[in-house]
Simulated scan of single mutants.
Amino acid sequence: MRTRLLQGLSLLSTGLLAGAFGYGAANLVPTFNAVPIDMRLDFHAELMKMNGITMQATMAVSALSSLALAALTRGRTRALAGAAALLAVASFLITRFGNVPINGRIKQWAATEPPTGYADVLRRWELFNDARTLTAVVAFALLTFLALRETAPCPKGHDQREAA
């Protein structure tokens, strides 16, 4: 029962993470690029205030629940849950060391003016955003595969627990 609850928590939190990053990549970034730069900087700076706590918490729950799931299981389930945990940690590290420093610059630019060459910095932020989105989506896909695999009927004479 504890394993199923952890599996549900890891699937939910990683799905929320992948969904939030996916929505940002598919909708926010193109919108950022379509509006005047001062509007983008103001909105981006305000959005990061809100995202700071919620996204870090989601990444932490995703990584920790996937890691706990890996610790409580064995075989292929352990490997896939562990891989999902590593991918969630990768999303955090990409965010922390890639996007967050650039967010700090954007906050400064919103209060003043963007410097010459700001477009290259914004493109780098988008590359980091794409990378963290990809890691979150793959983590979610792995956990979804686990959930679907465990609910699929086993061939006659096989116990589902043996497959895990």
Rank of each mutant, 00 (worst) to 15 (best):
V89I: 12
G104W: 08
A141E: 10
H44R: 13
Y118N: 05
I102W: 01
T116Y: 10
S65M: 00
V121M: 09
L64T: 07
L17P: 02
W125D: 03
A164V: 03
L5Y: 07
E46K: 15
R2N: 13
A20C: 11
L127Y: 01
T54L: 08
L11N: 09
V138M: 04
L64R: 02
M48E: 14
A45M: 10
V100F: 06
D42L: 08
S66D: 01
F21M: 10
A85H: 09
N51V: 13
G19H: 03
A90M: 02
A57S: 14
R124T: 08
G117Y: 00
F140Q: 03
D38C: 03
L69D: 07
G98A: 08
L11Y: 06
L146A: 07
I94R: 11
Q160N: 13
V89E: 00
P155C: 06
F140V: 04
L93D: 00
I53P: 04
G15L: 09
A83W: 02
L134A: 15
S62K: 03
G8A: 15
L16H: 03
A119S: 10
W109P: 01
A119N: 07
P155N: 11
M48G: 09
D130R: 13
L5K: 09
P153N: 01
T116A: 14
T116L: 14
L134Y: 07
P114N: 09
L17N: 04
F128S: 10
S91T: 14
V100A: 13
R74K: 12
R132F: 08
A85Y: 01
F21N: 11
K156D: 13
Q108V: 12
